[in-house]
Write a protein that binds this DNA or RNA. Sequence first.
DNA 1: GATTTGACTACTA
DNA 2: GTAGTAGCCAAAT
Length: 107
Amino acid sequence: MANEGFFEKVYQVAKGIPYGRVTSYGAIANYLGAAGSARMVGWAMNGAANKDVPAHRVVNRNGLLTGKHHFQGSNLMQQLLESEGIEVVDNKIQNFEKHFWDPMKEL
DNA sequence: GATTTGACTACTA
DNA sequence: GTAGTAGCCAAAT
């Protein structure tokens, strides 16, 4: 697992998100050591769209599906989350803290 | 090589 | 509680 770049790291963490869990960009960025650069995580997701990375499990700190607009469908992201047992209302995750998955603590 | 952009976060008013 | 601004860093143009 050579560090090919920032993106690969993000992919690794994103793939490490267990089923029915979600995390925030900042949490991933912090885990990568790029704390404060949550934008980089989102940017990395731009390439993750072509990978096997469950980007739908990654949301902003408010639990809001900010990146849903980047998915194929308009409500695909929400449906995927709901499919995992996560309550999503108005593009926002309910009980976000309950579903929140911290890579630093879990990994 | 400089400028722009970007799926964010935190602080301040 | 809401709104606006600043800071962050890396990739694309």
